[in-house]
Amino acid sequence: MAPTIATTLSFCAQSKPAGGEISGVPESEMLRKRNEELEDELKKSVEREEKMKEELEKTRRRVKVAEEAEERLCFQLGELEAEAVDEARAYRARVVNLMEQLSAVQKLLLSASK
C-alpha cells in the first residue's frame, strides 16, 4: 500500500500549471479519485483482517480440540501402561509359581528314583 501512496504523492507534487490542473484534470478530481482508491484499499484491508481473525479463531478452536484429544490419549495410554504392568506382574508371579511346582516335582521324582 505504501508504494502506491508514494507514487501518487510524487505525481501530485509535480509542478502544476495555473488553476490547479494537472494534464487537464482538476486537482480536486485527482484527489477525489485517490481518496476513493485509498478507501477501497482500506475496505479490502479491513475485510482481509476480518478473514484472518476468523481463520485465527478457527485455528485456535482446532488447537484446543487437539490438545484435549492429546490429554485424553495420554490418560488412556497411562491406564493401558498400568494395566500392562499389572498383567506382567501377574504373569511373572504365575511363571514363578509354576517353576516352583516343577522344581518340587523334579525333587520328588529324583528322590523316588533313588
Rank of each mutant, 00 (worst) to 15 (best):
E50S: 06
A84Y: 06
E70F: 14
G20P: 03
K51E: 07
V95A: 01
T8Y: 03
G24F: 04
E54A: 13
A69D: 11
C74I: 13
P26H: 11
M30H: 10
R94A: 15
L73C: 07
K33T: 08
L102D: 06
E54V: 13
A84F: 03
T4F: 06
S28W: 04
D40T: 05
R94L: 15
V96M: 13
A93W: 02
M1S: 10
N97D: 14
E54W: 07
K16Q: 15
K43L: 04
S45W: 02
L77T: 11
A66I: 14
E68V: 07
L98G: 01
E50G: 05
V96I: 15
E57R: 02
E55L: 09
L77V: 08
A112D: 06
A93Q: 05
R92T: 08
M30Y: 09
M99T: 13
L108H: 09
A104K: 06
G19Y: 00
D40Y: 00
A2W: 00
E37P: 01
Q14R: 05
F11Y: 14
A13W: 00
L31D: 03
R32V: 11
P3Y: 03
M99S: 14
G20A: 11
Q14M: 02
D40M: 02
V85G: 02
R72I: 13
T4M: 04
A112R: 09
E54S: 11
E57A: 10
S15P: 00
M1L: 10
E55R: 08
C12H: 15
T59I: 13
Q106F: 06
F11H: 12
Q106P: 03
Q76C: 11
R48T: 02
R48N: 08
K114R: 09
V96L: 15
Q101N: 05
I5N: 11
V25P: 01
E67R: 11
A82W: 03
E36D: 03
G78L: 08
R61E: 14
V65T: 12
L109K: 11
L98A: 01
E87G: 04
Y91A: 14
Q106R: 14
E57M: 05
D86S: 08
E55G: 08
S111A: 12
S10G: 01
K64C: 07
E39H: 06
E29C: 06
L109T: 10
K53V: 08
L42P: 01
A88K: 06
A84I: 01
S113W: 05
V95D: 02
K44P: 01
Y91T: 12
E70A: 14
R61M: 10
A84E: 06
K44M: 09
E21K: 14
T8E: 04
P17D: 15
M52W: 09
T7L: 02
L80G: 04
E47S: 11
A90W: 04
E67Y: 09
M30T: 05
D40E: 08
E49A: 06
L38T: 03
V105Y: 10
A82R: 13
E39S: 08
